[in-house]
């Protein structure tokens, strides 16, 4: 009798743990949230295509940093042959100066903590 109570208690604990995402989202009530990126730029296109930037931007920024800091090479030749200045502040943030409405949208949503701002100053708009 007491052993079956223990087994049922164990199973209930297991079910609670395994269904954590389900009830956590119900309790939190924010799971339907999807990030919205606001682009406030005059430019028609980014340095690379939207699809490329979407999945490879962190790699690109890392390559840029290595190129600038270690090789003193600031010229980036994009896949379409166009030349760009490798600079987070002067190139990226020129268009995407709205960190909270652009960068943070996906980064917060996916719990990503980029190390950009360890060295770089957070753009003006974020200062309070």
């Amino acid at each position: 009798m007491s052993s079956s109570a223990k087994v049922i208690a164990g199973l209930i604990i297991f079910l609670c743990l395994i269904t954590f995402p389900v009830w956590y989202n119900v309790v939190g009530g924010k799971a339907s949230y999807t990030p919205e990126l606001k682009i406030i730029s005059e430019e028609k296109s980014c340095v690379e295509s939207k699809e490329f930037m979407r999945i490879e931007h962190m790699q690109l920024l890392d390559d840029w940093r290595n190129s600038v800091v270690r090789k003193n090479n600031r010229t980036y030749i994009a896949h379409n042959g166009k030349e760009h200045n490798m600079s987070l502040t002067d190139t990226c943030l020129k268009c995407h100066s709205n960190k909270t409405e652009f960068c943070d949208q996906c980064h917060n949503y996916l719990e990503v903590t980029p190390t950009c701002w360890n060295c770089h100053i957070v753009p003006e708009e974020n200062k309070l």
């Binding site: 995402p21 920024l61 890392d62 190390t115």
Partner: peptide
Amino acid sequence: HLRFFTEPVPFFVNLLEGMDGLFEISVP
């Protein structure tokens, strides 16, 4: 993997990720 299934992501997931990616080798 809870960071994909929950919104907002619970604090302990972030904590664990920080520990797991401690050495910050390559990006991501």
